[in-house]
Design a binder for these strands. Structure first.
Lengths: 333, 333
DNA sequence: CCCTAGTTTGAAACCGGTTTCAAGTGTGGT
DNA sequence: ACCACACTTGAAACCGGTTTCAAACTAGGG
């Protein structure tokens, strides 16, 4: 049950372990017959190198720490998947830690990753302060995803949420809607405030002002979509369209509208944000702003790998894409 | 930028590194004043132990290898999340590897995990043979999730899919349906064949036989739900209900029915399998058989931890639960 | 044929911890 | 006062690799 070590190979092949190491890593020239002996011994004994020992010796763990928020949110999950995919075949493996949306847990989790001597860190979302990140990850390649810390100490891969919110709202305006309700995300969540800013900006550009009675809070959950529609309906202020914080919220809103006998898009149009997998298959298929979550994740992996190799990489906000399906009706003509 | 080692602490505290180790791990009694000196030095220098070195020394990496299939499938993703959650606060971290549904990649991925000297392995789904698993993971605590390898060499946490399929079909029969179409999953996927067996069993118990014209293949995707419904409709064999391979397939089926002007559940009833997050919020909310994916994942973590501690654990198939919502109408009376 | 430069090679140090072992210290019993 | 025994402690070995260094060997040039 014992593991085979390079010492065992050295003995069998009749060389020193230094030579075995050199053969295995092609790190120096070795006489052909010795090389052959080592290779044969390696295969015969079924050697698999102890990555832990190797890491200790050369200081590289071949591991990338990934901090998720584990909220079961389709968006963040898709980013994680992108990170995993982007690391495939790189030799690096992703080590996950879980922040549970609590800052203290996130700080602990980062510490755990750093303690494991990961070669790089990918932080997905979360609320850890810039200073804390700098302190813990100093000297370590670090990439933030789905978050923008506006200073040049960090590398960030994030979406331009104001332009995304603008895109959605402008489209609704173009389709002739004027009473456009918005279900916001969590009050202080930067994504939510940015999308809301885009919403306002689109109205401003059209020389219009959004009706404050059509603005309602949410928390990115489907349940909050239901609550929001009920709230909206109780305010007795007519609206012909809803811009939901994300697709999940849109699903909830759609269901609540249905329960009130309101058709989508016949009576009210609906637009989401994210473009999660299911959105193309609900009835009616949801018009939404696509966030390339998976791509952002794999982009983060590429960035980390580049940083590890000593390279640089420039990040610029990725743009959302309007995916037009069937949940928005035209009010023109 | 250099890291603080226990050697540094030993020097500052005026003791040997053995003593530092003993204080840090409470592994032996140490004189109070020395202990105090060590603790102070530790805090003053901001020491964080090198987990890699520790792993090498005591042979425990405090890491659990997790092999996923990364298919973006809500079901498998939920299991992964459960595994992550179950490991939280255990001191162990999950190291992910990606099998991409290809057996050769899976074998490589397992090898990579084992090479990193993980203390246990969680295999989620996948098609690696029992022998291969035994060979690679011999001596390592190993748990399979969402898969049943019927021999006593492995620990498996899986759902009883025939009883699940039975549950769904029996419910439809009880509601008065007789022409029940089934959209199967991938032809040779064990989950699909088991659910189909449950479907047949429910018919048999009722003294009925399913109509072969109402059986159609799928691949667990939403797109395959659309294709299946089109196929079904083209066969011109009446049906009043559809049992879909999973919720995603049900979504696709629902959309296709809608496009053909068929109401759910007015014209045809629909039942899914999984109970993914969104299923409660589509219109109509989907009646389905719930698979406790997340729970299975965290259960797997618990099992692994127990096995690592030398304990045992007995696995028995988890049962699905019928979640009755609004997508099935009664045909009785 | 000798000297020098270049190539292979193994011994040993090292990465940063844990653990064994034996020496040193102190305590209590008689 | 003496001895046995328990308790602390540091030196050193160890985990399994990588890397430095210097010795030994090889080949080429004069």
């Amino acid at each position: 049950m014992k593991n085979v070590t390079i010492q065992d190979i050295a003995r069998v092949a009749g060389v020193s372990k230094s030579t075995v190491s050199r053969v295995l890593n092609r790190t120096a020239a070795v006489a052909p017959e010795k090389r052959k002996a080592v290779v044969e011994a390696t295969e015969r004994l079924g050697f698999s190198p102890n990555v832990v020992a190797r890491s200790l010796a050369n200081g590289r763990s071949m591991t990338i720490g990934v901090l998720t928020q584990l909220i079961g949110s389709p968006f963040y999950d898709a980013i994680s998947q992108g990170v995993i995919a982007g690391l495939a075949d790189s030799g690096y493996s992703p080590l996950f830690a879980d922040g549970q949306w609590q800052e203290s847990k996130q700080v602990d989790a980062i510490a755990a990753l750093v303690g494991r001597r990961v070669d790089g860190v990918v932080l997905i979302g979360g609320g850890v302060s810039s200073d804390e990140i700098s302190r813990q990850c100093s000297g370590l390649p670090t990439v933030l995803v789905a978050r923008n810390l506006p200073n040049d100490r960090h590398h960030c891969i994030f979406m331009d949420n104001v332009s995304g919110g603008h895109l959605a709202t402008k489209y609704l305006l173009q389709q002739g809607h004027r009473q456009i309700a918005i279900i916001r995300g969590l009050e202080h969540h930067p994504d939510a405030v940015d999308r809301f800013a885009g919403y306002q900006q689109a109205f401003n550009e059209a020389g219009l002002t959004p009706d404050p009675k059509l603005i309602v809070e949410g928390d990115f959950s489907a349940e909050s979509g239901i609550r929001a529609v009920n709230e909206l309906l109780s305010r007795e202020q007519a609206f012909t369209a809803i811009f939901a914080a994300n697709d999940l919220t849109a699903f909830g809103a759609r269901l609540a509208l249905d329960q009130h006998g309101l058709q989508v898009p016949g009576d009210v149009s609906l637009i989401g944000f994210d473009d999660q997998l299911e959105s193309a298959y609900v009835t009616p298929p949801l018009t939404t702003v696509r966030q390339p979550a998976r791509e952002m994740g794999s982009h983060a992996s590429e960035a980390i790998l580049k940083l590890i190799e000593g390279g640089e990489f420039s990040s610029q906000p990725v743009q959302g894409e309007l995916i037009i399906r069937k949940s928005v009706a035209s009010r023109v003509g």
